[in-house]
């Protein structure tokens, strides 16, 4: 028996928003520690890694490891039926071919359950090595979303260049070019608005705008985002989900042939 309950459905709704444009289907691997999801987009350019720890749920029970293969657009349709303040419970029997979502209103006066067919997904899993990155940049997630959106107007790629002085995002194309430079902040009133850079070596890498914009669908999950870069390896865009886990997106760079 698997059962996971969240007091607020909004977390799960936001998680779905953060992955559903990038992935059509994915397996939720559930064990004692919580729920893990790892999946590549259809073009195998990026990889999503989601962790929701058992201790972040209000109730969590997983008697046997279970993999729930889900169609994400169907799951998203179901989660849209939950009110933001509803409690959500995901349930599946061992070896089940369906998963059930139960939504309960705060006063318990409305209880809905939705049963969804599971899919047998034979997806490739990748081992992600522990990596020391040359640069890590922490900034407001809303600011990062804004930068990606603004620069997307200029071209298909964004160049991210990180030095000790700051981080620079650039794009160029038919209409011209754009550069946004962020300096490391000296002091801020709100911690989540700070730009914090840790740099061992300067790094400049080029990435596809389209994917960066997909990743920013996670903005509402966290006030801050962390970018980790090293030369010639995938960028990591990490959103920490308060009290329960994180979502990490890995994006392969564009490299000069």
């Amino acid at each position: 028996m698997f059962e996971a309950r969240l007091l607020r459905s909004s977390i799960l709704k936001k998680v779905l928003e953060a992955i559903k444009d990038l992935l059509t289907q994915a397996t939720f691997d559930c064990d004692d520690n919580g729920i893990q999801l790892q999946a590549m987009d259809n073009s195998h350019v990026s990889l999503v890694s989601l962790t929701l720890r058992a201790d972040g749920f209000d109730k969590y029970r997983c008697d046997r490891n279970i993999s729930l293969g889900m169609n994400l657009s169907s799951m998203s349709k179901i989660l849209k039926c939950a009110g933001d303040k509803d409690t959500v419970t995901m349930k599946a029997q061992d070896n089940a071919d369906t998963v059930t979502f139960v939504f309960e209103s705060p006063n318990q006066e409305k209880v809905s359950d939705y049963e969804m067919k599971l899919m047998n997904l034979d997806l490739e899993h990748l081992g992600i090595p522990e990596t020391e990155y040359s640069c890590t940049i922490r900034l407001s997630s809303a600011e990062f979303a804004r930068i990606c959106r603004d620069l997307s107007q200029f071209g298909e790629s964004i160049v991210i260049s990180c030095t000790k002085e700051g981080v620079r995002f650039s794009a160029s194309g038919d209409i011209g070019s754009a550069n946004i430079a962020l300096a490391q902040t000296a002091s801020v009133d709100k911690e989540e608005e700070a730009v914090v850079i840790e740099m061992e070596e300067p790094v400049t890498l080029t990435f596809a705008c389209q994917y960066l914009n997909y990743f920013t669908k996670a903005t509402s999950l966290s006030p801050q985002v962390q970018l980790s870069m090293s030369a010639d390896v995938p960028l990591v865009v990490e959103y920490r989900i308060p009290d329960i886990g994180h979502i990490r997106y890995y994006l392969a760079p564009k490299i000069d042939d």
């Binding site: 590549m40 990889l47 899993h125 990748l126 994006l251 000069d256």
Partner: peptide, 14 residues
């Protein structure tokens, strides 16, 4: 000539 790399080449297949 800048080309988009695939992600699989950077990680090990399990």
């Amino acid at each position: 000539n800048i080309k988009q790399k695939g992600i699989t080449g950077f990680f090990t297949k399990l």
